[in-house]
Design a protein around this nucleic acid. Structure first.
Lengths: 338, 338
DNA sequence: AATTTTATTGGGAACATTCCCACAACCGTT
DNA sequence: AACGGTTGTGGGAATGTTCCCAATAAAATT
């Protein structure tokens, strides 16, 4: 009887004078146990305050019921909401999530995945960093048949379940809306060229212009890395044009909010002189003045969907049917800025 | 040679014709190994793509290097920042965090702790729900000597490390500031009476009033459960007073923002008619108009501190010295609303 | 009465690793 | 030549659980 010894099924067995096999059966609702024996075991387990050791179980089953969630930054409301959705989706099935932040560093992303693999998580839900271009690591995991779900910033080359925002439609709708408001010189604050989401939103913008017979002007597009410096430079450049824009469309809300504030600081009237629109419907978009017109995304729903996809994989439901890209639909929220 | 068999040290041992003990030693940097043997083992480990099984290690050591983090809601920027701080603090020492949201439900909080105990986390960092009043469960853990750190919404009765916001000082400073601005009828939007943080902020407010010879008026204090209904009711009540307040002080930013918007909707000039102040310096407080004067908190720092406390406990540093309450200091951020 | 079935139980392997103990072999010292 | 010490290695227990395979006894069938 050691001092710092945790209570095990062997302790229960000894106390009752039976074998650990029987105790195990009683505790796991195995039918091959005498009801009286089971009752005795259950009672003894309670009096000894027995806590099953999941570690031992995990070792046997090679299953930890833990999922790795890789995101760039939990402090961004978008990712926080996704995490919440994932947790609520998988929590019901007894899965726990280990959140790891990459801080937008591909290197840290890699290290996190590696570390969580060592911790033997049962699967990964991944949103890559802004700068991730090398997907070798996750491809290796895919080849090993490891459960993977990708969201928001996805790796297109891999046939795994993906959940994305309503990228094309979002910018198509927003641009269309600005055109309907009579705008003709619509600038676009875009993202990194290599990001799939960024590309699609860009295409939504150009498609809307084309369908309305508005000439595309390269000067009105600014590619950013989502950094504040980039936004400031873009606005400066646009305002210095001989024919400045009458609307600025952005592919992310934080950028739109910054644009809004920069314009206001220069005494530009919104939306009279320049209309501004965002993407995402971040909580903050309803608080600035004027309120920001933005294409609503439901990150919580994205998380829910991603979590459900993961559960499907873990249940090995559709190993045959090819995984699909799920688009979480959104809708335009019109506010004062347009 | 089974098919879906993971590579173990025994595989390495067999391939090299040595014992698993030697392989283990080589891999764990144990000095009692022939350098040549070590080299051979390391090479073979690489060629076989050996991944150590932390589960087995955890089982032996009864240590998972996982920490449970219990928070009410990851979508609140405050908690998201704390989580980020905790992760960055403990991540350096190889600890991972399992985040569990209680959704402000004491029941779910309890279940989460229970579930994470079964997962054998090495410790808990807890922020209780708004409504947690029964601390029996966490007290049990304390009695077992389980590593605990409490933050933001703490359990005072337990002598464990705690990290809290600058509660008293925050409301003292803010109230003082309003008085200096010439306000005399300062209302307080408070929180639940049983919460320690709520109490201290309340005391900060009353102390500032008393020191300035301003009579305390019970009618100007409204206790909320941080719900939007509560805020609306309070504002309604205050505006209906024969002598309405000339300033409204709140103990949380979300409430202050709501107050701001309610007042604006009624055409009340801010700060001319009524000044408004918040607590926390949430990202949103800089975006509303007028900008919200608020007492800055650094939730990221709170997380860092809480994480460091946990590391100290895990290293069993001060088992002798009694744990202290750490106050994360803040400062007043004055904006247009006062 | 002999045989088969059923219900209940126990023993031990397996999961992957560390760590303690023992056993060589070799070295230098008396 | 005998002894003590070092260096490297192997064997086996231990961690806590499940699960398979017997083994027993009782019950049911032939």
């Amino acid at each position: 009887m050691k001092r710092h010894h945790q209570v095990t099924i062997i302790d229960i067995a000894r106390k009752l004078g039976i074998s650990k096999s029987t105790v195990s059966r009683a505790l796991t609702n195995n039918p091959n146990v005498n009801p009286d024996t089971r009752k005795a075991v259950l009672e003894m387990a309670k009096t000894l305050d027995y806590q099953p050791n999941m570690l031992a179980l995990s070792l046997i089953k090679s299953e930890t019921r833990m999922l790795g969630v890789i995101i760039p930054d939990i402090q961004k409301p978008f990712f926080a909401a996704i995490v919440s959705g994932i947790q609520h989706a998988v929590g019901r099935m007894g899965y726990r999530t280990i959140i790891a932040q990459s801080d937008e560093s591909p290197q840290i992303e890699k290290e996190n995945i590696q570390a969580l693999m060592l911790s033997r998580v049962d699967g990964f839900l991944i949103c890559h960093t802004r700068d991730t271009r090398n997907f070798d690591q996750i491809k290796m995991l895919y080849q090993k048949g490891f459960p993977l779900v990708s969201f928001a910033r996805i790796c297109q080359e891999l046939p795994i379940p993906k959940v994305v925002e309503d990228d094309f439609n979002g910018l198509y709708t927003t641009t269309q809306h600005l055109i309907e408001r009579g705008r003709r010189r619509i600038a676009l604050l875009a993202g990194p060229k290599h990001l799939q989401a960024s590309k699609l939103r860009y295409q939504g913008y150009t498609t809307a212009l084309r369908q309305n017979g508005i000439a595309f002007d390269q000067e009105l597009v600014a590619h950013t890395r989502f950094l504040t410096e980039n936004v400031e430079a873009a606005v400066d450049r646009w305002l210095a044009l001989s024919e400045p824009p009458d609307a600025i469309c952005t592919i992310y809300d934080a950028g739109a909010i910054q644009v809004l504030q920069l314009l206001k600081k220069r005494g530009i009237q919104i939306p009279k002189d320049i209309a501004v629109a965002g993407f995402g419907n971040d909580p903050a978009t309803g608080l600035v003045e004027p309120g920001l017109t933005t294409f609503e995304q439901r990150p919580y729903e994205i998380g829910l969907l991603a979590g459900k996809h993961m559960l499907d994989i873990l249940k090995k439901r559709f190993t045959d049917t090819p995984p699909e890209i799920t688009i979480s639909e959104g809708k335009l929220v019109v506010r004062g800025s347009t």
